[in-house]
Amino acid sequence: MEARPHILIVDDSADVTGALRVLFEETGNDVSVANTIRDAVAVAEGRAVDVMLLDLTLPDGDGLTVLTTMRARATEPRVTAALTGRAEPEVAARCSAAGCRAVLVKPVPIAELLRCVREWTT
């Protein structure tokens, strides 16, 4: 049997990660959740991540640090999408320069989230 895609959700709000966990688990994915940069990096050390949904504001610093740290440790997910509250060109440019495939504005309509993740995991 083919392994289920591994989705890592990085956000400091338990309410937000809770909702996304339900969404992705119920649609056939394995889900890990991290609330800090440190925890996110640790998750990727344990199991390769297919898709990471990354909030940009984390309690221990800039969310994009997760991506650069993982890259340095060769644990970078196949695809990373930034989750942000505001779609500003400078934010989008920063995410794109850091290697994010997409910048999604919260709350992302779930149909769009599922479509993106399906596309990135097949």
């Binding site: 309410d15 909702a19 996304l20 919260k106 709350p107 779930i110």
Partner: peptide, 23 residues
């Protein structure tokens, strides 16, 4: 504004999960 957006994001996402029959 930021503190209001976060729970709203969770509310809307949960409601969409219900609406789309995922549960």
């Amino acid at each position: 504004s930021h503190d209001l957006r976060t729970p709203l994001t969770a509310i809307i996402t949960h409601a969409e999960i219900l609406r789309d029959g995922i549960l």
